[in-house]
Design a protein around this nucleic acid. Structure first.
Lengths: 205, 205
DNA sequence: GCTAATAGCGATCGATCGTTCGCTAATGCT
DNA sequence: AGCATTAGCGAACGATCGATCGCTATTAGC
């Protein structure tokens, strides 16, 4: 139908495939994304789908990278200019929670796929772990900045605060994906606000 | 090899299959449990594996039921005699968190399989939703009892408290499954204690 | 306008999926 | 002891999985 479209067009085809694969993965999980199903959905042959990637695992990695890019574009990037600390951390979680509820996304894709692959060693799981580790490092950095700026009491336990903030997001994710709870975002927002206003303290030694 | 073992023996074979399927599902997810793999692991033929169930979906339902039974035996049943309220609720979460960390269980199987099936309509998803709904109802009941007994301040927002308690468990689950964090159980315990000691209040109208 | 390069198709591969058959062989009942 | 019952085997089924071929048809470069 459309052979030899120049290098730019090649990249466009790749993007088209990744985009569709991402949508399918959001709905049914990354492992449920099949070459044949993608080919049918895109009106292509299976060879045309797998061609630009060579391997299904490589396609899966591309989908994970796409998810990371979208997360960053929506959550992290808009806050690049703000000063680190409690304010930026609260805004980051607000963006994340809003992103979970946006159309087509039943919850956070990276969270779901992390649960899906945590028992299957390989490059895909490693890539997901790296992405989540970067997010955790960001949160830890913001907490440290907030402590240094005196926005959090000096008795704050940073790791415990990060643990409970993560739980808030995970609870919102489950409420959205499993129960379609329209109040989930509001509840998560209140929990984050409360956690930053009176964070957990280090236990007495 | 061992035909005609009486009805009791038939049930035993069924239990053997479910037990193995449960172990495989805990490790790799429910969808990764395959008839051929089960047959190989158990030293049986594929027909012998699927025979007692008739259908793979029926086998999946049996695995979900098994998970529910184990959860109940480990978490809910031991507290049947205790009086409802904050104390029993705290103990229930303590049991749950301990169960997550027990050998062979990377986290809570029902939580994982809920995330795995939340986008796939069908009897399996329905069964999981029912189980989680029962747990949520239990938590709500305990919170109501605690409120009635004056163990929680009257300003407590019950749904918000349940939301944040759930988040605590989910965070522990992720910390255990994805990061193998040995401190996860301790962090979750501290979070639960703190939530019950100073629960979120209903927002000013 | 001719030629070299290549994106994507159509066909096919072996493996594995869930499921369905007889059939065998061991058992419970009379 | 003989018979009816049945748990489980071995083999096969159609479908689909990911992957690998030539081959075609279009385009870029000269």
């Amino acid at each position: 139908m459309s052979p030899r479209k120049s290098v730019a067009e090649t990249a466009l085809t790749r993007a088209r495939i990744v985009d569709r694969a991402f949508a399918l993965a959001v709905a049914d999980g990354l492992e449920a994304v099949t070459i044949g199903r993608l080919a049918e959905d895109l009106g292509m042959s299976k060879a045309g789908v797998i061609g630009p990637f060579g391997t299904k695992e490589s396609l899966q990695l591309a989908v994970v990278d796409e998810a990371v890019d979208r997360f960053r574009a929506r959550v992290t990037a808009p806050l690049a200019g703000a000063t680190p600390g409690a304010g930026r951390l609260a805004r980051a979680f607000a963006e994340w929670i809003a992103y979970m509820g946006s159309a087509g996304h039943g919850g956070c894709f990276l969270t779901s796929v992390a649960a899906e692959f945590d028992g299957r060693p390989g490059p895909v799981r490693d890539r997901i772990r790296e992405a989540l580790a970067r997010w955790n490092a960001f949160v830890a950095g913001e907490i440290a900045a907030a402590l240094a700026a005196g926005e959090l009491p000096p008795t704050t336990d940073p790791d415990q605060l990060a643990f409970e903030l993560a739980g808030t997001a995970l609870s919102a994710d489950q409420a959205i994906q499993l129960w379609h709870d329209p109040l989930a975002a509001d509840r998560a927002h209140r929990a984050v606000t409360r956690l930053l206003a009176s964070p957990p303290v280090t236990p007495a030694p």
